[in-house]
Nucleic acid binder design. Structure first.
Lengths: 213, 213, 213, 213
DNA sequence: TATGAATGAGAGTTCATTCAT
DNA sequence: CATGAATGAACTCTCATTCAT
């Protein structure tokens, strides 16, 4: 009732909050498995709840509705991906290595989240009516992701390591190639990791396919 | 009732059949618009029928069920795309030109079918239970599509115009880049045609992005 | 336009009318096969029309709606059955023989119309709303049918050949036994004719099953 | 979540299960009224739900589909009938009394379930495609029902109380007479109980209708 | 007369969401 | 906090019926 809290109350509240977040993440993980396996519409709240070991009503204590759960999953995953790619690329001392690291990091991430990426690529591009704000953050994360690649490219261009072409276009092309290889891996059920695919993508992206005279 | 037909009867039957096919195509076109705008699940038969100017029951006179309509749309579109790309590439006298023509033809096609391609890339990779035969032809068309690019690449490799790399991988990378640019065009609502995007793709694919010393 | 007809016109009109009745009967025969095989709801107008060699719309030129067709079938069949049983029983010179002939005639009829009788016994006892007048005649035929048996029984009772029991009840019991044997024949797919069943029914009905001391 | 249950949990689970069964029975009772009044096809799930005081979707929490509800009703009723007839007949010390008790028990049961029996006799003899296992138990109950009568008859035959005739045929004839009287009671809206009808059936079955010299 | 394409009401069924316990 | 029974809107699909040809 009071806005003032004793230290104990505060600590208890903290723990409560932490517990709540942990349970939220637990549900999110269950949702990922189910959504990834079946897609948005074929995945029922009931099945997600079951996967998480809860009853269906409980989901609604942590997420406003099905779309919110879905959006939260995307938000979480895409953020993590950007973070991973960004931090990996920052380990490099020079832009070309950074670019290569970024591509490898991306494939890494895909490797560990194959089903999710199938979902990601299939994602409808337009948010359902009335839920657009919710998807804005996802969109922003995605933009930041492109931005990371774009910056690396631009830095390399400044150092005259890469040709002068529209950096956003180039970033998109890189992503397109990565996405396609991941989808192929899913489709064909590739068992080996995607580092080989990473090599091909980097090679083609940097040097093209034309036979040098 | 009779197995014998007068010429008139025959002609009348022909016209009936043609009419039927025309109406089918009309529904298919409506379905394309609705499916493309909303995706499979969000698109209701009712809305497709309305778009086509029919009552909902009428759809079922032309397609067995919703999935059949969806599959027919894919079958039709993907076949047309393969045909277009293939015939365009065959106009070329030598493989490198053929490859370029193929890429441009593909972008051409995307330009005229932007929404559909959004749908295509989002397409679930597994057919719904019990409808798998129906989707086999779609899958085969898609494979043939990759095959066309693959062959062009291989021919160029034989003439030592392209480097020796896995031709299927290269074909996939090309498609991945094309797909990504098309999605970007949809996402951003690009108004200009995609030929500029085609140039970038061809340039990067052939020469890579590394600045030659 | 004129209400007066020349003799030719009259004859032509007669033939037209006869043709119309022939086609009606043709449809009725097709309807019998389909209704008997599937029951009222599972039988579609389309399938009946097909069976008759017509298009579905044509059925409506001869019958007001599906229920009317169904009722007409019952009306026709039950009338025929009563007629057959009645005329057979009238060949007898004395009531007991008449009763036996009636039972045999009934089984005869069932034998030639097995599927239809399955339908008859399954028939809903209440007419659909708004169609009750149509079913009145069917009901009346059925009553007349019971009446025929009842009269035979009463005549035999008057001659002290049968015991004094409620004649309507006895008529119903006879019908009940016949019906049950026919249904069993349908259920089990008996191939031989039902005359053996007729013997059992007559024997039991007349003499009961108690072993005489 | 835990496999271990405290006694309270166990009791709570028991009550839950009992509640569930009670609600199932409640729906079954509503379904009986509606099905009996209208037949399978004319009875909508919506109307059954309404009769039970539920929304339509709720029905599906207790029964897989409409056919399952229908089959459950039959299963339940026919089992109860067999049980009732069997246990009544077993109260008798000798077969003839057993037979009489069986017939009376059957009429008893019909008296309390008139509408249902109208439905029972109208029941389609062939199960819908893909649902045949569900109907097998109903069929088996029905066979057991005939079997009970058959056994009583055979026992009486062994004691030379009844004549040597096919016992299954005799059982069927009994059932046929009972059914017919029940249907007549429904059709005519008899208000008095059916024990009078039972007397007639027993009398005719045992002694026949022929006037002894 | 006959056709059969088109209709649209109505059915069964699913499932996200709510809320009393 | 968690539950899961109940809800009811929304959807797909069927088919008796109509009517322009």
């Amino acid at each position: 009732m009071s806005v003032h809290q004793t230290p104990e109350e505060s600590r208890a509240a903290d723990r409560k909050e932490r517990d709540r977040i942990r349970r939220r993440m637990h549900i999110l993980a269950a949702a990922e498995r189910i959504f990834a396996a079946r897609g948005f519409h074929e995945a029922s709240i009931e099945s997600i709840a079951q996967e998480a070991g809860y009853a269906s009503g409980t989901i609604y204590l942590y997420f406003e509705d099905k779309d919110a759960l879905y959006a939260a999953l995307f938000s979480h995953k895409v953020s993590a991906m950007v973070g991973h790619v960004e931090s990996e690329s920052e380990k490099a001392s020079e832009p070309m290595e950074g670019l290569e690291r970024a591509v490898r990091a991306q494939f890494d991430f895909h490797d560990q989240n194959r089903e999710f990426f199938d979902l990601l690529f299939r994602q409808r591009q337009t948010a359902p009516a009335g839920k657009s704000t919710r998807w804005k953050t996802v969109r922003e994360s995605y933009e930041r992701h492109i931005g990371v690649l774009q910056q690396l490219i631009e830095r390399a261009q400044k150092r005259k390591l890469l040709r002068k072409m529209d950096s956003r276009h180039l970033a998109l092309l890189l992503l397109g190639m990565i996405a396609q290889m991941t989808r192929e891996a899913i489709r064909e059920g590739w068992s080996e990791p995607l580092q080989n695919a990473a090599n091909v993508v980097i090679e083609v992206f940097l040097n093209g396919v034309r036979r040098s005279a």
